[in-house]
Nucleic acid binder design. Structure first.
Length: 391
DNA sequence: GAGAGAACTCCCCCCACATTTAGCC
DNA sequence: TTGGCTAAATGTGGGGGGAGTTCTC
């Protein structure tokens, strides 16, 4: 049993939201991030199953565990423990994906050729079934990032295509995308593949989570709040578009350019609104569905940045802290993260929409008396330009 | 447990004036 | 139909203060 959801504190945390620096269960994740358009942009991924405090960026097939960059490094590259473990990249996602969409995001963990893909997918999140045969071979493992290339090319090419062609020499044994629709590998060979992502067909019912992940939603906490203000509990609008994130691999033919785009990287998300506005996500939009991801050439920091590293750094955490056997993250740090999450939840509001920047620019330099504008030339007690008071 | 008061939080309102919009010719 | 002119409406941010909530005794 891992850590409990930072929000409901009842369910096991499954995903990690970097913007909120919080680990959430799936139902809370959906509840929280369906609140408004800003929260929908939060990039989430699986939570590291070792430290339970960082977003997982890779999954070790041998150990059947999803790991963050740090734990992966400490457990593999940084030690003698099976550095050649088969690994697969773990995608990020944003928005309020349905169960089928979520399964699509993470389905590369499964062998597309396996007819039980959907079945396995359903249990993947919870149990992480050991499927050594599903993943990359040892050769591919060392270059697992290429899998993202294939995955992305397969995902985003608007036309049916041969993934092997798209992937080039590395594609022959690359895992393909398996959608939760589980119609079989042939699904990817025609447009029906993308029909899976057609918003008209996307099931946004939260019940899908229960169907897919077996997460009980009976807890009233999972219901959206009525206040309509707090981004976490506000709007009941469930009709927002779904935005799934996945790794964007460098060299991808999609988008027509090689892009080094740390999709999940952004300035530290001390404020989710700001981070959402500035998040340089590279979104490939097809209807209402968009993907973004990491470059295959991203540095370790880039991968780390896909998770909470930014906020953790802001909190003064060293980027590479050694994990403890059971709890790698200091409890104080975790508490800090939870505190930040709660604080943000408390203070989050809909941002004020500035319609006329010119007026804002003027207001920003207008002199005031007790907050009120004063006529030009009159005495004032506050000058925004000099931040001084004249009387 | 109930009530009173203090402490705290939230949010509306005010101001001047450049800009925008609407109406008229 | 288009352009020019005028008047009214709009919107911008910091701080005060009222209203509501929470906490303490």
């Amino acid at each position: 049993m891992g850590y409990l959801c930072d929000y409901c504190r009842e369910q096991r945390s499954i995903v990690f939201c970097r913007s909120d620096a919080a680990s959430l269960c799936l139902s809370c994740d959906r509840s929280v991030h369906s609140a408004n358009s800003l929260s929908k942009r939060h990039s989430r991924t699986l939570v590291c199953e070792r430290c339970h405090s960082q977003p997982a960026f890779v999954r070790c097939i041998e150990e059947r565990i999803s790991l963050c960059q740090n734990c992966d490094w400490m457990g593999h590259a940084g030690s003698n423990v099976s550095p050649a473990h088969k690994k697969q990249a773990v995608n990020c996602y944003s928005g309020c994906p349905s169960a089928s969409e979520l399964s699509a995001v993470w389905s590369f963990l499964l062998d597309v050729g396996d007819s039980t893909c959907e079945q396995e997918m359903s249990s993947m999140i919870i149990t992480y079934p050991n499927r050594p045969g599903d993943c990359l071979g040892a050769q591919e493992t060392s270059n697992f990032r290429d899998a993202s290339v294939v995955a992305e090319a397969t995902l985003f090419d608007p036309k049916p295509h041969n993934s092997e062609k798209q992937a080039g020499s590395t594609s022959s044994s690359m895992p393909k995308i398996c959608l939760s629709g589980a119609k079989g590998p042939s699904e990817y060979e025609d447009d029906s593949f993308y029909n899976e992502f057609n918003m008209d067909e996307v099931d946004l019912n939260i019940e899908n989570y229960e169907e897919l992940f077996g997460v009980a939603l009976n807890d009233p906490k999972h219901l959206l709040d009525d206040d309509g203000i707090d981004g976490l509990f506000g709007t009941k609008d469930m009709s927002g578009s779904t935005c799934l994130g996945a790794y964007t691999a460098e060299g991808s033919s999609v988008g027509g350019a090689n892009m080094i785009q740390p999709a999940c990287s952004n300035a530290a998300s001390a404020d989710s609104v700001v981070s959402s506005k500035t998040e340089p996500n590279l979104c490939y939009t097809r209807q209402a569905l968009s993907f973004s991801g990491l470059t295959g050439e991203s540095s370790a920091g880039d991968y780390q940045d896909c998770g909470a590293s930014s906020s953790m750094k802001i909190m003064g955490e060293p980027p590479w802290y050694p994990p403890a056997p059971e709890i790698s993250m200091p409890s104080s740090s975790r508490n800090d993260a939870v505190m930040r999450y709660m604080e943000k939840k408390k203070t989050r509001k809909f941002e004020k929409k500035v319609r006329y920047e010119s007026r804002k620019a003027r207001a920003d330099v207008r002199r005031r008396v007790k907050g009120r504008f004063v006529k030009a030339g009159e005495t004032y007690d506050y000058d925004p330009l000099s931040h001084t008071r004249s009387c």
